[in-house]
Design a protein around this nucleic acid. Structure first.
Lengths: 354, 354
DNA sequence: ATGAAAGCGCTAACAC
DNA sequence: GTGTTAGCGCTTTCAT
C-alpha cells in the first residue's frame, strides 16, 4: 500500500463546501447547465488551491476508459518510426489523448507482449504496423479496443488503415531505374511475409514489366534471418548482409541497380558497398524507401521514396480517436492513403552505354 | 461506462472452486507456502481457461503502484534518445516493469505536461534528462515518485544520476583538436542553461587551456532561439543556422575547427558547410558528440565522442527500480558514470603548416 | 441545482 | 489453508 496521501475529490468538496458529486460534475462538464457559476468557480478554486489531480486508476476503474492510445512500432531506433510516433503523439495530445509507445524488435514474441501490455492498460485504441503478425490483429479485433493499422493496407481484414500507396511506391522505383537505363536490377528485402511488403514488391515488379523487364530470381534477396539484436539496427545489418552476399554473386558485372526495401536497409547496403570497394552510383545505383532524414545526409545522398511519416502517425491517431467518439463506431475499414514521392539524390545514376 | 464484460477474479474463483482471496494469493505469490499445490494448479488452470487478466486500474487503485517507469526525452526523433529509450525499455521489462515514453520538443511547456502526465499515471519512477528544467525536478522530488536523472549529473540536487563524464568528453575534444594543430576553434551549442552543458563546455575549455589556447568569445555560438518545430529536428536546424552565421563571420580564414554540442547539431553543420561551399575536413574540422549511428554513415564520417547510449538508458531504469525495491529507499544521489570515448573518423584533419 | 449512495475489481487485514 | 470483508477514489443514478 505504498500510496502516499493523495488529494481526493472529497477534499476538494469539503474545501469548496459542496458534495463530491458536484465536484465530479464540474470537472467533467456534466449537467453543466445546471450548476451555478458561483459553485463552479468555488470548485475550480479549490482544485487549484489543493493541487488536485483526479486519480487515474479510480477513474479508469469506473469508466473503463483510459484516454490513452497505444502504438506498437517495430523499432523506435529506426527514424522512420520515430517520426510516426511523433506525429501520433502530437495528434493524440491535441484531441486530449495520450500515447503509450511500445517497441518490438521485429520479434514475434515481443509483438504479442506489446499487445498484451497495451490491452492490460486498457488503452482505448491501438495503432499497429501493417507488418505485424496478422493473428495478433485478429486477436485485437475480438476485444473492444479500437484498432488502426498504419503503414500498409490490410485488405482482407476489416480494419481502418492509414498508409502510403505501396504499390505505387514500388512502381516509382522501377520506373526511375528503368529510365536510367538499368538492366540488372536487384531487390533486397526482409521476408515478404505480409501484404504490405508484397504490395510494394508487386508494384516494383509491375514497373519492371511495364518497362519490358523481368526480375531475375537470382537478384531477389530476401533475408531469412530473424535473429538477435544487432548493434545499430536490425534492418541495417540485414541490408549489409544481403548486399555483401549479392556482391559475391555479381562480381564484375556492373553497373547494377538495387532497390532496398527501406532506408535503413539501404544504409547497410552503402556500407557493404564501401567495404567491397564498389562505388555508388558508378557501380551501383541504390534506391531506398521512407526518406528518413538520414537519407539526405549520407554520402552519396540516397535516392528514395518519400513517405509523409509524421502525417502517417498523426492521421492514424486521429482516425483511432474518431472511431472512439462516433457512437456508431463501425470499425469497418476506412482508409487514408497518401501518395509516395520519388526523391532523386545521388545514389542513382544513368548507365552510360552506347 | 463503455466497459465490456471482463473476466474478474471472481469468475476465476468460481471456476476454480475457491475464494477470490485465494486467487489473489496465488497470482501474487503471497503466503505461497500456505497454499496447496493442488489449489494453486486449479487456480492457474482457471486463469488460463478463462483468459483472465487482472484489471490494471483496480490493482493500481488498490496498491498505488503501476509497475511502470516513465521516461521523458527531449526528442524521440533524435537517435541518441531513441537508443536510450530502447535500453531503458529492455532493462525495465527484464525487471518486470514497463516503460512509458513521453517526448518534449525542447519546449519548457511540454516538459511540465510530460511530468504531469506521468505523475497522473502514477508511474513508480521517472527517468528525466539532466537538461530538464530544474524546477520540474524539484517538483518531482516532492512527490513520492522515484526519480533518476540521465545524461548528466546534477550536483546540487540530491538525486541519482547516470551519465557519461561530460567534462572529460569535452576535454577529449579539445585535446584532439589541439593535437591536430588547430588554432581557430569554435563551439556551437544550445543554450548553456544547465549544468550538463556547462560541464561539457567547461571540459572543452579546460582542454584548450591545457594546450595553451583560449577560446575566442567570437567563436562561441550559442543558439538563443528556442523556436518552433523544424522539419527534421530542432538540433539539426540549430546547427545549420549557427554554422551559417559562423561562416559569414570567418570568411577566408581557414582552416577552422568546430565542436558541435551534439551529433544532430554537427549534421546541421555539415549541411551548412556544403551549402557554403566549404570542405570538411580541409577547411573545417568538425567534432560532434554522442556517436549516434548516423555519425558513421554521413560523409565525411563524423569524428565524435562516443556515449554508451543503450547502457545509459538501461542503467537508469535499473537504478530507478532498485530504489523502489529497497525499503530504505534513500533516494540520495547515487551516480553511475560511464567514460566517454573519442571516435576519430574523417571530419577532422591535421592542419598542415610549416 | 445539489447530495447520498452504490458499486467498478482488486488486495490484505482478520477471522475461522 | 481458505474465506469474509472493508475500502482504494471515482462516476452516476436516483432523490430531494
Amino acid at each position: 500500500m505504498g500510496r502516499y496521501k493523495r488529494v481526493t475529490s472529497h477534499d476538494v468538496a469539503r474545501e469548496a463546501g459542496v458534495s463530491i458529486t458536484t465536484v465530479s460534475f464540474v470537472l467533467n462538464n456534466v449537467e453543466s447547465g445546471k450548476i451555478s457559476e458561483d459553485t463552479k468557480r468555488r470548485v475550480l478554486d479549490a482544485v487549484r488551491k489543493l493541487n488536485y489531480v483526479p486519480d487515474f486508476f479510480a477513474k479508469g476503474l469506473k469508466t473503463g476508459r483510459s484516454n490513452t492510445l497505444g502504438i506498437i512500432v517495430p523499432s523506435i531506433t529506426n527514424p522512420f518510426f520515430a517520426s510516426i510516433v511523433q506525429g501520433a503523439g502530437d495528434s493524440a495530445r491535441q484531441e486530449g489523448y495520450n500515447l503509450i509507445v511500445t517497441s518490438t524488435y521485429r520479434e514475434r514474441l515481443t509483438e504479442a507482449a506489446c499487445v498484451d501490455f497495451l490491452l492490460e492498460r486498457q488503452v482505448d485504441a491501438i495503432l499497429v504496423p501493417a507488418t505485424m503478425n496478422p493473428s495478433l490483429i485478429e486477436k485485437l479485433k475480438k476485444v473492444e479496443t479500437g484498432i488502426v493499422v498504419y503503414n500498409g493496407e490490410l485488405d482482407q481484414l476489416d480494419v481502418s488503415c492509414v498508409t502510403t500507396d505501396n504499390f505505387r511506391g514500388g512502381w516509382l522505383v522501377s520506373k526511375h531505374l528503368i529510365e536510367l537505363g538499368h538492366h540488372q536490377i536487384a531487390f533486397l528485402s526482409p521476408p515478404l511475409s505480409n501484404p504490405v511488403r508484397e504490395s510494394r514488391f508487386a508494384g516494383f515488379q509491375r514497373g519492371l514489366l511495364d518497362g519490358g523487364f523481368r526480375l531475375s530470381p537470382d537478384y531477389v534477396m530476401i533475408s531469412d534471418f530473424e535473429g538477435e539484436l544487432p548493434d545499430v539496427n536490425y534492418d541495417y545489418s540485414t541490408g549489409y548482409n544481403l548486399a555483401s552476399d549479392l556482391f559475391k554473386r555479381t562480381s564484375g558485372k556492373y553497373p547494377i541497380a538495387i532497390f532496398a526495401f527501406n532506408d535503413m536497409l539501404a544504409l547497410g547496403v552503402i556500407r557493404a558497398a564501401a567495404d567491397a570497394g564498389l562505388r555508388i552510383p558508378e557501380d551501383i545505383s541504390l534506391v531506398g524507401y521512407d526518406d528518413i532524414f538520414v537519407a539526405a545526409l549520407v554520402h552519396p545522398g540516397l535516392t528514395t521514396i518519400h513517405q509523409p511519416k509524421y502525417h502517417l502517425g498523426a492521421s492514424a491517431a486521429r482516425l483511432a480517436i474518431e472511431h472512439l467518439d462516433e457512437e456508431h463506431r463501425d470499425r469497418s475499414g476506412q482508409r487514408v492513403v497518401f501518395q509516395p514521392q520519388l526523391r532523386v539524390r545521388n545514389s542513382t545514376a544513368r548507365v552510360d552505354c552506347g
